[in-house]
Computed example of a mutant assay.
Amino acid sequence: MESTDVKSVENVNDEVDSKILKQLEYYFSDTNLPYDKFLQNEIKEDDGWVKISVLLTFKRLASISKDPLVIANAIQKATSSIVEVNENKDKIRRKPEKVIPIADQEYLNEMIERSIYCKGFPKTATMDELLDYAASLKDFKITKVIPRKQKTKEFKGTLYFTFETKEQAEAFLKLESVKYGDVELEREWEKDFLDQKKVEYDQKLARKDQKQKAETEKYFKKGYLIKADNLTDAVSVDKIKEICSSYEWQVAFVKINEDKLSAWIRLKPVTIAEELLKNIADKTNDLNITFSLPEDSVEQSVLNEMTKEMKGILQMKDKMKRERNKNKGAKRFNNKRKNEDSNSANKKLKTNGN
């Protein structure tokens, strides 16, 4: 009986050690460490070493064991691990010979090349359950599990599995069936999924831009915007308007930009800006202000902003008008009520007098 109990305890300890090792190897892995800013800052402080007490602030490790000595011993036993423990058993680091990859775009692209997008997980699934599922796929070594989340941080039910090699990822994709519980998982290359999402995003932006453009055209026509540059603090809206007037430009609006060095001049839709600038090509002004046509995309962007401002002004005016009408209505009601009360009082006086 005693021998069985000892073996049972040993099995439990081995299981805990295995979980500790797996978690720490993930923290210091190629797929996590290059992107973990917190750990990156820590390893710079002490030749790569990170205090176990610091690592225990990570909830997933602390959920396995909160005992620093247990964690240190688990790493010490694992001689072939990518991590090691110091002599005092209070710090852990990635072995110096295991060079940390540089987290550049090339490395990210290489990771994406061996990653699979999967859909069909319950939105209630926890990270532990997803990691356990990844570990249950015995024929594959999944080095990273990246759940996709809503803005509210809730799990979307989709994720990326990053495999040790592209060949493993391809073999996983070619499996006839992969299930999570009773649900068949939809699978495709992460790169293909991201490409499709980019297409959808670009289409969404195009629709938004088209809608904004149509909205702007209700207020402003293109071709009547001029940019003024080389402004100084002494240049005011009125000064710019004076110069425009000297050129016989019909100006609707002038706005000095935040940098105070440039301004936008919106003309009345009489003569296009290009023609006006041709007419003053050989002219100068006392303030040495230069005038130019904006690029098409810049003009659209500026007019979009002006449209937002215009709509805001109109909405404010409309709100103020409603408030005035509301106050007038209340005033008329109060006057009517006073008249009724006065008439009622007069009737009572007459009745009492009779």
Rank of each mutant, 00 (worst) to 15 (best):
M111E: 12
L56Y: 02
V183T: 09
Y133E: 04
R94P: 10
T126L: 08
K166L: 05
K350C: 08
W249Q: 03
T271V: 15
F193D: 06
S81Y: 07
S292R: 15
E154L: 14
L24Q: 07
I71P: 05
N88R: 14
M306S: 07
Q212F: 10
I142E: 01
K153V: 07
I52W: 02
I43H: 04
D139P: 01
L159W: 02
A252D: 14
Y27H: 06
G181Q: 11
P147S: 13
Q168D: 00
A263L: 11
C244K: 04
L225I: 01
E170H: 04
K213M: 07
W189D: 09
E97K: 14
R148S: 10
I82T: 15
I100R: 08
Q250S: 15
N285T: 03
L55E: 03
A74I: 11
E167A: 05
K268F: 08
L205I: 12
D282F: 15
M1I: 05
M1K: 09
T165W: 00
E87Q: 10
V254Q: 01
E274Y: 14
K66A: 13
K22F: 10
P101F: 01
V254F: 11
L303A: 05
I289M: 09
E305N: 13
A171N: 07
N32P: 01
L137D: 00
I75A: 03
D259S: 13
A273R: 10
E217F: 05
Q168F: 01
P101G: 06
K328M: 06
F121Q: 09
N304R: 15
P68Y: 02
L33K: 00
E2S: 13
L277A: 03
L56C: 04
W49K: 03
A62E: 06
N86M: 02
V235A: 02
T271A: 06
E242A: 05
A281R: 13
N41H: 12
Y133N: 06
V70R: 13
N13P: 03
K91H: 13
W189C: 09
F193H: 03
F155S: 07
Y201S: 08
A228Y: 08
E2Q: 13
K119M: 01
E129H: 04
K350V: 11
T124G: 10
A273F: 03
G329D: 13
C118K: 01
E10Y: 11
K91W: 12
L185C: 02
F121V: 05
D104L: 00
D46A: 12
E84T: 12
D46M: 10
M310G: 05
K123V: 12
S344D: 09
A263K: 04
I52H: 08
F220T: 02
Q300I: 10
S262E: 06
N325Q: 12
A234I: 09
D195T: 14
V237R: 06
K91T: 04
V9A: 10
D286G: 03
R187I: 10
K153D: 15
D132I: 01
T57A: 12
E258K: 14
E242D: 15
E340D: 10
R322N: 11
K141D: 07
S344K: 10
K213N: 08
R187D: 03
K22R: 06
N13Q: 11
R187Q: 13
E340L: 13
A134E: 00
K59F: 11
K255R: 15
K321M: 15
K204H: 14
K166E: 06
A78Y: 00
R187G: 04
D139W: 00
N339P: 00
K319H: 05
F291A: 04
F172K: 04
N86D: 15
Q76D: 15
